[in-house]
Amino acid sequence: MNDIKVKVKDLSLRYGTNLALKNISMDIPEKMVTAFIGPSGCGKSTFLRTLNRMNDLIDNVTIEGEVLIDNINIYDKNIDVVNLRKKVGMIFQKSNPFAKSVYDNIAFGPRINGISQKSILDEIVEHSLKQAAIWDEVKDRLFNSALSLSGGQQQRICIARSLAVNPEIILMDEPASALDPISTAKIEELIHELKKQYTIIIVTHNMQQAARTSDLTALFYMGDLVEMNRTEVIFSNPAKKQTEDYISGRFG
């Protein structure tokens, strides 16, 4: 097992008075793929969004506990959330490219970081698109609107866009749930490539996907972390009855 990148300690989250995450603790290793599975509404996406403080945007959310990234508690009051999000990128369930050209989408992150020199931007755009394995498909239409691409391509643009700010961790919230099988396969292949360099945390509905792509799997149910282990263990020899029931499709 690799070094621990993210360490979560007794994390609880409330929407108003409604307890959505209950005392979650887990260790997420570096440069590996960790999958969160569970029935919808179990808190897996909410949990994912605590790792880059995306829940800050929602009113009425209170969080207790700690999330340590590289041994720094990201809920400390001195934390710079903007820089945190540069380190922890996020890919969303619905691909959300900006209504700009492919090039401008990718260059968005570097530009807000003050990079304006065209040659550097060109380099970053090309590199990021290559990393996201979509360079060959879009290199001739870099200046067309990103919205003119297919759903699967749009999602890979979003991945490239996120890579362009040089993150260390990439959070993926059901990145392939809206895509066809071929596009899904491409994304999964990409995840496999990316884990060589990035720590990847993926939320998925699809257990086969978790089994195919991840090194570790965590099962959530009703705001609880039921079980977390190496993926092959979870899928072949789970410790808990609840996990086994879920894996075999008896609920959820």
């Binding site: 001195n78 710079d80 903007v82 820089n83 540069k86 003050g114 090309e126 040089n166």
Partner: peptide, 16 residues
């Protein structure tokens, strides 16, 4: 492939 400028800009990103 990242250039020096980018490295300089991005590597100093700390959030503590």
């Amino acid at each position: 492939l990242k250039s020096k400028e980018q490295d300089a800009e991005m590597d100093i990103v700390t959030f503590n």
